[in-house]
Amino acid sequence: MSYFSNKVVIVTGGSDGIGKALVESLLQQGARVATCARNFDKLYQLGKMHAGKSLFTSAMDVSNENECKLFIDDVIKTYGAIDILINNAGISMRAMFKDVAIDTMRKVMDINFWGTVYFSKYALPYITKQQGTIVAVSSIAGFRGLPGRAGYSASKFAMNGFMEALRTELLETGVHVMWVSPGFTASNIRNAALTKDGTPQGASPLEEGILMSAEDCATQILDAIQKKKRTLIFSSDDKRTVLLNKLIPSLTDKLVHKFFFKNGELVK
């Protein structure tokens, strides 16, 4: 029997990338899964691909508080409980702060941070009853601010702080709270990343083929949930970045700048 067998698991942003890989792995392990995304067609194809399995889908926007509440209500009507919430839905950005529109940064914050807050708020009573787990898919950008991604980094720093506070509040309730921080993972997130005016970037500045696969990332996340880890940082490079940023922040500034810029231009 899988650890996830018969557990009710919510995965936000389940139509692409890490979210889709999580949904598919959970279904294979016998979980009863609920997922949401903004793209109805992709959700329809996901449901069609897994016809006959316990999969509830809904096209919605996680930045809309009322839609988040209604989704949780629908999950309870469908499954009667919630064991695990994986706050995965997110959007990135790529633009220098001097150029970016405030509305673009606000949109990133609304999806990445407030989406996590809304889902966690309305799912919490049911997860507390099950002594379940709340997970946030964060980023190394939540430990170290990244150039060209000021709004994204801000949203992930906020997410990490929120999760840490929530974890401490729930310490004696039996609810487990954790956050995971994948590095660069092959997905659609960079294609959909917002430019300075809020339009999708449409292409990735990275070589996607050499990045960690979404499936490998999902496997590590589910293993961390089962082991009730506090946090998960994936690669040795990312762990080194977090450590260096704590111990020698001025050096880390230079190393990060060198990685993202070439001849004074943002290239990654």
Rank of each mutant, 00 (worst) to 15 (best):
L27C: 09
L146M: 14
Q201G: 13
I102M: 14
I111A: 09
G174W: 15
S181F: 01
H257K: 12
R38N: 08
Q226G: 11
K229Y: 09
T35C: 03
G174Q: 13
M49R: 15
Y79N: 07
G132P: 06
C36R: 06
V8D: 13
F184K: 07
T35W: 01
D83N: 10
D223L: 02
M96F: 12
G148Y: 09
M109G: 03
F162C: 03
G52S: 06
G80A: 02
E164K: 02
D253S: 08
G151L: 13
I86P: 01
N39R: 15
L222Y: 00
D103M: 06
L251H: 08
V177D: 12
T104C: 12
K268D: 08
A150Q: 05
L55C: 12
T12F: 05
G90L: 04
D223C: 01
F119K: 09
E169I: 10
L266Q: 10
L222V: 01
V137T: 09
P182L: 06
A141H: 02
Y152H: 07
E207R: 09
L251R: 11
K239Y: 06
K107I: 03
S153P: 04
L43M: 07
K228T: 00
G148P: 07
Y126S: 08
E207T: 12
P147T: 11
V11F: 02
K196W: 13
M93H: 13
R149D: 05
V100K: 14
V9L: 00
M60E: 05
W114S: 05
V256P: 00
Q130Y: 06
L171A: 11
E172N: 14
M93V: 02
T231D: 15
D238Q: 07
L232C: 12
V75Q: 09
A154Y: 11
N112I: 02
G209C: 13
P249H: 01
D61F: 06
N6W: 09
L27E: 13
L243H: 01
L194F: 14
A51S: 15
G30E: 12
R230F: 14
S2Q: 00
I189A: 03
A150M: 02
V62Q: 01
Y118K: 10
G13V: 04
T116L: 11
K107G: 05
L255G: 05
D216E: 15
K129W: 12
C68N: 14
S187E: 02
G47A: 06
I210T: 13
S187T: 07
K254S: 10
A95H: 07
